[in-house]
């Protein structure tokens, strides 16, 4: 297997990092979805089984993981729209950078109310 020589890490700019983040969040969401379909399938077993498993999720650690997951989805979704605009909108490539800033702004605007609500449930009982 050909290996790149050491010390040649390519440091792309925002384009490369947004691509890395899009990839990492995409994989993370996929594995979550797999587990999420399995746990939801417990409604077919019995109400008790479902409620019991959902109840075990109500811990601070899982609560923080849920917050991370929502953050990942919001980034992936808006950055996905950015990718689509770069591909199909004539001026997309020229404004890709501004659009990434837009993704960040939307991310904050949605995450703040979500975190206030979610973390007050998680830590406030």
């Amino acid at each position: 297997m050909p290996k790149a020589p050491a010390g040649t890490l390519y440091r792309g700019r925002e384009g490369m990092w947004s691509w890395v983040a899009h990839r990492v969040t995409g994989v993370g969401i996929f594995f979550f979805l797999f587990v999420h379909v399995l746990d939801t399938a417990l409604v077919r077993v019995s109400p008790e089984a479902y409620n019991e498993v959902i109840h075990t999720y109500q811990t601070p650690i899982v609560g923080l993981m849920e917050a991370g997951l929502v953050g990942a989805i919001i980034f992936h979704a808006f950055n996905g729209i950015r990718i689509i605009l770069v591909d199909f909108w004539g001026k997309g490539p020229r404004y890709q950078r501004q659009m990434l800033v837009g993704v960040g702004v939307l991310w904050v605007v949605l995450m703040v109310p979500f975190l206030v609500r979610h973390l007050s449930h998680v830590f406030g009982g």
Partner: peptide
């Protein structure tokens, strides 16, 4: 997650 009781309302019902 956001409407009503949010995530705490999640159960079989």
């Amino acid at each position: 997650l956001m409407v009503g009781e949010g995530i705490n309302a999640l159960d079989f019902a």
